[in-house]
Amino acid sequence: MSMRPGGAGETLVRDRHLTGLVLLPAVVAGLVLVGLVLASRLFPAAAIFQVSRAVPFEEALRTDEEETVFEAIRAGTDPNLAIEVRDAALTGGRTIRALPVTLAVATGSEHALQVLLGHGAVVDAARAAWLQCLAARAGWPAIVPVLTPFGGAVDLSGCGAVAGAPLLDGQGPD
């Protein structure tokens, strides 16, 4: 079909092309969104769809990954059961047993600590006071107020670390 320049045929072509151009962003967005929904069904383990990293409970406590900590508790991990910890800085390379709250406090994992306290971890007044001291010694002052309601305010001036001693030595309430 030949078209006369400036005639009705050309107007129709411009109308159609403009319609396509204006529609294009919505079509692309729609395809991408629907594609992502399908991909999330086909490849649910892909990193793009993950809320939390699949890492061990202990690592999640150390790296303050609250979702992973909660997933572990939901899956059956007891937040009041001591876990084995071995770390050059924290334990001087020794393997010791420590409660999850202790590890969270020692590593400054405030979010993970809040998850533990909100979902089953039992902290009595004596342990809360000891944990506040631990937080002060470890250099995590922001953690102290999280624990204050469980054991009252503690005089932190007497919490000084022993020179050369690891932060977690297997002693204390754990």
Binding site: R14, H17, L21, L24
Partner: peptide, 23 residues
């Protein structure tokens, strides 16, 4: 659409950018 191809190119691009931004 009524103004001819030269105006169409600029106008269509502007409307495309507008629609893309809002999308």
């Amino acid at each position: 659409i009524a103004a001819g191809w030269r105006v169409w190119r600029g106008g269509a691009l502007a409307l495309f950018v507008l629609a893309s931004g809002w999308e």
